[in-house]
C-alpha cells in the first residue's frame, strides 16, 4: 500500500515538474532563442547588403527569394520604437521560429500584388503580441537593403477563420481594395493563446525611398 502511494505521489511530482518546465520553455526559452535567431538573421541580411555594390533601386534586379533565407527587415512603430524583425521567405514552423514569414505564393516586396507576412502572436519572441493595437494609418516600414518601403494600414485588425485564404489574395477580399495595387497583409493568430481564428491587417504602399536618402520619417514620428 505504502509503495503504491509513494509511486503515485512521485508520478504526480514528476508530471507537475514537467508542466512547469514546459511552460518555462514556451514563455521564456523560445523567446530567448527567437531573439538570438532573429538578430542573427538581421545581421546576415545587413552584412549581405553592406557587401553588395550600391546600385540605384530601379536598376537592380531583385534576387529570387530562397525559402528560409531573410528577405527584408520590418519595422512597425506602433508595436514599439525598437520593434524590428527579419522577414524570411516561407511560413513553415522552423522559419517562424526565427522571425516573420513571407507567404511564398504572394507578391515580392513593393511589387504589384499582395506581400503577405505571418508572425507569432505568442511564444518565439511574441512579435505580434500587440497586433490588436494596429490602426488604420499606422506605418509598416520594410527595407530590402536598397529601398525603404512605407506601407500604411487601411483596414484591420480583421478577424477571420484559418481557412480564409482569400485574405492574402492579390486583391484581398474584405480589405476594401478594389483594383490591383501594391498591398501588404499581416496575419497572426487569435485569440492570443489559441488558434481558432486569425487576425489580419491590410496596408497599401504609401512611399518608397532609396536607402541612400536615409530612414523614412514614419520611423521617427
Amino acid at each position: 500500500m505504502r509503495l503504491v502511494v509513494r509511486a503515485l505521489s512521485e508520478l504526480c511530482i514528476t508530471a507537475g515538474a514537467l508542466v512547469v518546465l514546459f511552460v518555462a520553455y514556451l514563455l521564456y526559452w523560445t523567446g530567448v532563442q527567437a531573439d538570438s535567431a532573429s538578430a542573427a538573421q538581421i545581421d546576415t541580411l545587413q552584412r549581405a547588403w553592406a557587401d553588395a555594390p550600391l546600385v540605384t533601386a530601379p536598376a537592380r534586379v531583385p534576387a529570387p527569394y530562397v525559402t528560409g533565407k531573410g528577405i527584408a527587415v520590418m519595422y512597425v512603430p506602433r508595436l514599439g520604437r525598437d520593434w524590428k524583425w527579419p522577414v524570411l521567405e516561407g511560413t513553415g514552423p522552423d522559419i517562424l521560429k526565427q522571425g516573420l514569414g513571407h507567404y511564398g505564393r504572394t507578391a515580392v516586396l513593393g511589387g504589384t500584388g499582395n506581400f503577405a507576412v505571418a508572425g507569432h502572436r505568442r511564444t518565439h519572441g511574441d512579435p505580434f503580441k500587440d497586433f490588436p493595437l494596429l490602426r488604420p494609418g499606422d506605418a509598416v516600414v520594410l527595407t530590402d537593403g536598397t529601398t525603404w518601403f512605407t506601407y500604411r494600414i487601411d483596414r484591420g485588425p480583421y478577424r477571420t477563420v484559418p481557412s480564409d485564404t482569400a485574405v492574402v489574395d492579390p486583391v484581398p477580399r474584405k480589405s476594401g481594395f478594389r483594383g490591383p495595387g501594391r498591398y501588404l497583409t499581416l496575419t497572426t493568430c487569435d485569440p492570443e493563446w489559441g488558434s481558432s481564428h486569425r487576425l489580419i491587417v491590410w496596408a497599401h504602399l504609401d512611399a518608397t525611398r532609396p536607402v541612400t536618402d536615409g530612414r523614412p520619417q514614419a520611423l521617427d514620428s
Partner: peptide
C-alpha cells in the same frame, strides 16, 4: 495551438 498563425 500557439504555432498556427497562417491562413492555409
Amino acid at each position: 495551438p500557439f504555432n498556427d498563425v497562417t491562413v492555409d
